[in-house]
Simulated scan of single mutants.
Amino acid sequence: MYVADQTWPELGEYVAEESVALVPLGSTEQHGPHLPLATDHLIGESLAREAADRTDVLCTPTVNVGVSPHHRQFHGTMWVDPPQFRDYVESMTRNLAYHGVDRVVYVNAHGGNVQHLREVGRRLRDDGTMYAIEWMWDESIPDLVDEVFERNGPHAGPKETAMIMHVAGELVREDRLEDARDGGRVDLDDSPNYMTHGARTFFDALENSPNGAFGDQTGATPEKGERLFEAATEQLVNLVEWLDAREFEDLMAPAHVDPQPGSRR
């Protein structure tokens, strides 16, 4: 159920019975010469809406701009600073709590958002508002990704290329796949900037890839994208069902170990 398509009485019927919502998030940032800047938020929204349809839970509008300053040198990349991103997502999620939602899955498709979404989830659980967890699509199916692609690439690689071929194929510049591979970085570990004496000595994507792409994109196909999409959706559906079956009290932070602070005063 997509929240923006509903009327308020229809949503009243939902929150009277259900308490789970999916919040899709991504980014608007460069994805090499072959993929649109919308790549991450298209993937996040497609997965969230599909899982919501299959489970009859609520899906909110998508957060399209994320924490992406590490791509800022490339034209069109947009970003917000981490504190503002965290505060915005937290405020938006508290809106859901006001309407009766007490558990949320952040359906995330951008690596730069991960740590900040986990921090928001901790804030919300620590004050007893709700249980909100971050879910990253490719991290839910790592073995399949490794099986399908020999050289995945952490960004703008074959897995994201295949997913966009599946969900929005008209936006893929298929004539630029070889350019993406040859003008980017196939293996991140081969970059002279990746690790120096045990430290990651880079901050921005441009320091490791001249065109912002990683991996070998030439092996991506819509069929492989569909396979990834279906597997990730299944994982998300399973997560929603698991979350829905939990008692709210069991999702909250455990109590301090005994003796409780101040209990002997």
Rank of each mutant, 00 (worst) to 15 (best):
L42A: 09
P142M: 06
V240C: 09
R185A: 01
G76D: 04
E223A: 15
W8H: 15
L11H: 09
Q115F: 05
M163R: 10
L144Q: 11
V145E: 01
W137N: 03
D190H: 13
H256E: 13
V145N: 07
P9M: 01
A132D: 09
F149D: 03
T55K: 04
V120N: 05
M195S: 14
L171E: 15
A180M: 07
F203Y: 11
A205W: 08
P9Y: 01
Y14E: 06
A132Y: 08
A168L: 01
W137Y: 14
G225C: 03
P82L: 03
D143V: 02
H256Q: 10
D53I: 00
A38F: 04
L124Q: 03
Y131E: 07
P61C: 10
E13D: 14
A180W: 14
P9N: 03
V167I: 10
Y106W: 02
D102I: 07
H256F: 09
D204N: 14
L25K: 07
M252N: 11
M78V: 00
G44K: 11
T62V: 14
G169I: 02
R103S: 10
V107E: 00
V148T: 12
A162D: 03
Q115R: 14
D179P: 08
V20A: 08
R200P: 04
H41Y: 15
E29G: 10
D179W: 11
H75F: 13
A97Q: 07
S46H: 11
N193S: 14
E226I: 03
A205H: 09
E50P: 02
T39E: 05
R151L: 06
L11T: 14
V57M: 00
A213T: 08
L96C: 10
Q260F: 12
Y88N: 13
R227V: 02
L47G: 06
Q235T: 05
M136K: 05
G157N: 02
V15R: 10
L25T: 15
F203E: 11
E147C: 05
E90H: 11
P9D: 00
H155S: 04
V107Q: 02
T161I: 07
R94Q: 09
T218M: 08
L42M: 14
E119V: 11
L251P: 01
D127P: 01
M78A: 07
G12E: 12
C59L: 06
L11Y: 12
T233V: 10
L228G: 07
Q6A: 15
S19Q: 13
P69N: 11
D190K: 07
R264I: 00
P210A: 08
V114D: 15
D56E: 15
Y98A: 14
D146P: 04
H75P: 12
D182K: 08
L177V: 01
A52M: 02
R173G: 12
G100F: 01
G184K: 07
D204G: 09
G100K: 00
L47I: 05
Y194M: 08
D81L: 07
G198Q: 06
P154Q: 00
D87Q: 13
T77L: 00
E174G: 08
E29I: 02
A255L: 06
N238G: 14
R54G: 06
